[in-house]
Amino acid sequence: MIGDNKTAAPAALQHSWDQDAVLSVEHLTMRFGGLLAVNDLSFNVGRGDITALIGPNGAGKTTVFNCVTGFYKPTEGRIVMRHGDKVSDKLIEDATDSGEQFRVEGSSGVFLLERMQDFQISHRAKVARTFQNIRLFAGMTVLENLLVAQHNPLMLASNYTLGGLIGLPGYRHAREKSIEKSVYWMEQVGLIDRADDPAGDLPYGAQRRLEIARAMCTGPHLLCLDEPAAGLNPRESSELNTLLQFIRKEHGTSILLIEHDMGVVMEISDHIVVLDYGEKISDGDAAFVRNDPRVIAAYLGVEDEEEVEAALEDDANGDAASTGAGLKSNDEAGGAK
């Protein structure tokens, strides 16, 4: 179960996510008064990758998400979102120096998220997110929830409502397209039968799927999911895996997720970043992270250097029990399948 991970490749000097990053978090620091929630954190999210951000409770994962999506203004650091294949470093530096929020040249665009307002991060930088606790518009129907996510193109097509009121053809066309898109996503997440039900009436698992569908309706380049598998049963959890793989494969959307369910993380992640006390303690593919003594120590609360060494040796001996204990939920998830 543990050895068969496809990403277990020899550690290369240059990782793919460093060469072609869609999002770069650089020296991010977030302070709340005297509390240092995130300290000098840097990592890259590769284009088209599923990247997991893991760590014990209170490690600062959600704070990182909040900084990326504009909920918080970081105390220090830069968060760069890249659109297009090859974005030159020069463009990024130019945009940074000019004090602009973003700069688009031809097919490539640079977005400095720490300078942008939250609605622009969604609208221009194309970053979407979901929350740990479900935040659907409970009183609106499933379809309307998906239409709100397409607010900007619709608003434009309706000439800021005036055209929409008198039913101009341009608006009608845009509306049809947005409904088509909504229908497509309702089909993908299996909610097409409940299109006109209030979102608040859906069962929990369906609400989780609807949140992902809604985020996808904004047409994101990067999808940030905060514990998407929380509260899901094993079957729903594996459906979620399939959905995320599908999104990555068919839509080329890069995914950044926070997850405690190690079964999900190890199975679908191309790249894992581990945080503890606001600092990065490990960064690599699943096989690398799983065997990293610092990660095991963080999860087990081992502080003594010798115990870490011992754990490393146990690993080297191929003692599955010790690795299993290191990331215990991995075994649980394995057993559940």
Partner: peptide
């Protein structure tokens, strides 16, 4: 629709653009 969404959850509405 935007008004109704803001009515329910302003933060989420702004995260959807």
């Amino acid at each position: 629709r935007a008004q109704r969404s803001c009515e329910q959850d302003q933060k989420m509405a702004s995260l959807l653009g």
